[in-house]
C-alpha cells in the first residue's frame, strides 16, 4: 500500500498505484531511442505513443496508434519486411502486447533482422482505469518473448542496463525485444493529430517520397 501523504501520483489517475519497476518511462524510452539513430517507429496506443512523441517529437517517421489495440507489433513486422534496409522499432505497452502475445511467436519465426520491440511495462492499464495488468501479478513478457522464440531479449530494471539493451536493439541480427520495467505514473498527455490517414501519408511521404 502507498502512503497517501508521500504518493508521487497523488492527485493523478495513478494515485495509489504501485509497480515493481521504478524506471522513469519517459527517460528510459528516450534513452533507448536516442541510441538507435535513423529508425522508423511504430508507437502503440496511449502511454507508449506519449513516450515516443516526448522522445523524438512529432516526427513524420513515427506512426502512432489511437486505437486498434494489439496491432502495433504486427504492423511493425509488415513495415520491417517492406523496408529491410531500415531499422524498425515498435514501442508498445504491457496491456497492448498481452492482447496479441502470439505476435511475439509470429515475429520470432519470421525473425526480421531489422525489427526491435520495446515494451513499456508499468503493470497497469493506464489508458483505461489504471487497473492492474497481468504483468504485475506474475506474468513475465520477456519470458513470453523468449518462449515465443525471440533470440535477443533483455529485461531492464535499472538505468545502468539501458545501454546494453539499446546496443542490442541497434545491432541485433534478428528480432529483438526489450522489456522496460517502469514506475507507474501518469505523464502529461502529448497532443498529436488524430487522423491516422494523415499520419500514414506523412510517413510515406518522408520514407518513400510520395503519399
Amino acid at each position: 500500500m502507498t502512503d497517501p501523504n508521500t504518493d508521487p501520483n497523488k492527485g493523478t489517475r495513478a494515485e495509489g498505484r504501485t509497480a515493481t519497476g521504478h524506471l522513469d518511462r519517459r527517460v528510459a524510452v528516450k534513452t533507448l531511442l536516442d541510441m538507435q539513430g535513423d529508425v522508423l517507429i511504430v508507437a502503440g496506443l496511449a502511454g507508449a505513443k506519449g513516450d515516443v512523441v516526448a522522445a523524438v517529437g512529432d516526427d513524420p517517421r513515427v506512426f502512432g496508434f489511437g486505437g486498434a489495440m494489439g496491432a502495433a507489433a504486427s504492423m511493425g513486422l509488415g513495415l520491417a519486411l517492406a523496408q529491410p534496409n531500415k531499422r524498425v522499432i515498435v514501442v508498445t505497452g504491457d496491456g497492448e502486447l498481452l492482447m496479441n502475445v502470439g505476435t511475439l511467436a509470429t515475429i520470432a519465426v519470421a525473425n526480421p533482422s531489422n525489427l526491435g520491440i520495446i515494451c513499456v511495462d508499468n503493470e497497469h492499464y493506464g489508458e483505461t482505469g489504471f487497473q492492474r495488468s497481468h504483468t504485475g501479478l506474475g506474468t513475465d513478457l520477456a519470458v513470453m518473448a523468449q518462449g515465443g522464440g525471440i533470440g535477443a531479449v533483455r529485461t531492464v530494471r535499472e538505468t545502468a542496463e539501458l545501454e546494453d539493451a539499446g546496443e542490442m536493439l541497434r545491432n541485433s541480427n534478428g528480432a529483438a525485444f526489450v522489456l522496460l520495467k517502469v514506475a507507474v505514473n501518469e505523464p502529461p498527455k502529448m497532443r498529436t493529430v488524430w487522423d491516422a490517414s494523415w499520419h500514414k501519408n506523412r510517413f510515406r511521404e518522408a520514407l518513400l517520397g510520395h503519399p
Binding site: 504486427s74 513495415l79 520491417a80 519486411l81 517492406a82 505476435t103 520514407l207
Partner: peptide, 15 residues
C-alpha cells in the same frame, strides 16, 4: 488479426 496490422505496416513501407 495479426494480418490486418501486418498489411498496414507493409503499405507504410511501400509494400
Amino acid at each position: 488479426e495479426e494480418g490486418v496490422g501486418m498489411l498496414a505496416g507493409a503499405h507504410l513501407g511501400g509494400g
